[in-house]
Structures are given as structure tokens and as C-alpha cells.
């Protein structure tokens, strides 16, 4: 299968995604921290970002997945796991602490790389190191178990 058409679609999605992050205010760490700071002058902006994103996706998801397959590829890679694991909570907590410290989550950090800001570059580099470290640790701790990799691949 050619990679060009799926590539161009993914590119267009990335452009739109970045535009959404920028317009919504997610690329401003102060705004994100302002939302996470419940005391004082709380900034509810993120509620509207989440609402806009979720309602749009919620409306389109059933229409899209009604098709037998995606338009340019042969399979919908949608997570099917349902079990709740300590790992899910632990990972969420670690991510939340990092998110709260810097006000960046992965999407806005990637989008902000083009500013050339040292802090953004440092954040993304450290994030990549974190991802690779976790992968290396999983491989050492669970050499035979593929479940860790499988779990990492089935959500998002």
C-alpha cells in the first residue's frame, strides 16, 4: 500500500490539531496552569477546549466507525481493552505531576517546538528520554511478557 495518501491525511490532521491547540490556548503553559490552579483566579478555558473536542469527536466517531474500514487504510486501530490496572493510575499520576509542573502536555509541547524556545526543546527532549526509559525498563523487567508493549499500543 502506498504511504503517500495516508501520510498526507495524517499531515493534514497534524496541521489542524496544532491550529486547534494554538487557538484554544493550550500552547500557553500559564493558561494550562491557571486551569489546574483551583484556588485564586481559576481559568476555566480548558473545560471549553475539552468540551469542544469531545462533543465533536463523540458526534463523528459512530459515523466514521460505521464504515467497514477507514478511507485510506484497511483497519480501524481502536483500543478494545477495558480492564483497569494500577499501571493506568500510576502512569496518569506521573503524567499529571509533570503536566502540573510545566503546563505542557505532549501535543502543545510538540507544536511549540517551532518557537525555538530552549525550555520547550528541553521539555520535548526529556519527554523522549522518559518514553525510551520506560520502554527499556519494561523490556528488562518483563522480558517474556508482551503485555506491557501490548498495553502501551492499545490505548493511544
Amino acid at each position: 500500500m502506498s504511504v503517500l495518501k495516508p501520510g498526507l491525511a495524517a499531515f493534514a490532521s497534524g496541521v489542524l490539531f496544532a491550529a486547534g491547540l494554538g487557538i484554544s490556548g493550550m500552547t500557553q503553559p500559564d493558561k494550562v496552569i491557571g486551569f489546574l490552579d483551583l484556588s485564586g483566579d481559576w481559568d476555566p478555558a480548558l473545560v471549553f477546549v475539552m468540551a469542544g473536542g469531545m462533543l465533536t469527536y463523540m458526534a463523528l466517531f459512530p459515523l466514521i466507525t460505521r464504515r467497514a474500514e477507514p478511507i485510506l487504510t484497511s483497519i480501524f486501530s481502536v483500543p478494545t481493552r477495558r480492564e483497569l490496572t494500577p499501571r493506568l493510575v500510576g502512569g496518569g499520576v506521573l503524567f499529571g505531576v509533570g503536566w502540573g509542573i510545566a503546563g505542557f502536555c505532549p501535543g502543545p509541547a510538540m507544536t511549540s517546538l517551532v518557537t525555538g524556545d530552549t525550555s520547550v526543546i528541553a521539555f520535548v527532549a526529556a519527554m523522549a528520554v522518559g518514553m525510551l526509559s520506560f520502554r527499556a525498563l519494561s523490556a528488562v523487567r518483563f522480558p517474556q511478557r508482551q503485555s506491557i508493549r501490548a498495553e502501551a499500543q492499545t490505548d493511544a
Binding site: G20, S24, I64
Partner: peptide, 26 residues
């Protein structure tokens, strides 16, 4: 602005699902 940005993020994610069958998890 946050609402419009959120809608764009939702549309971008829906586009990736419809075209590539992938979840837009950054």
C-alpha cells in the same frame, strides 16, 4: 476561542480516524 480550538482538535482527530483508522493520541 477555547471552544473553537477544541472543535478543531476534535475534527483533526476525526480526520485521522476516518482516513487512517488511527487514534490521535500524541
Amino acid at each position: 476561542m477555547p471552544l473553537a480550538g477544541g472543535v478543531l482538535i476534535g475534527l483533526a482527530s476525526a480526520l485521522l480516524l476516518a482516513m487512517n483508522g488511527k487514534i490521535a493520541g500524541i
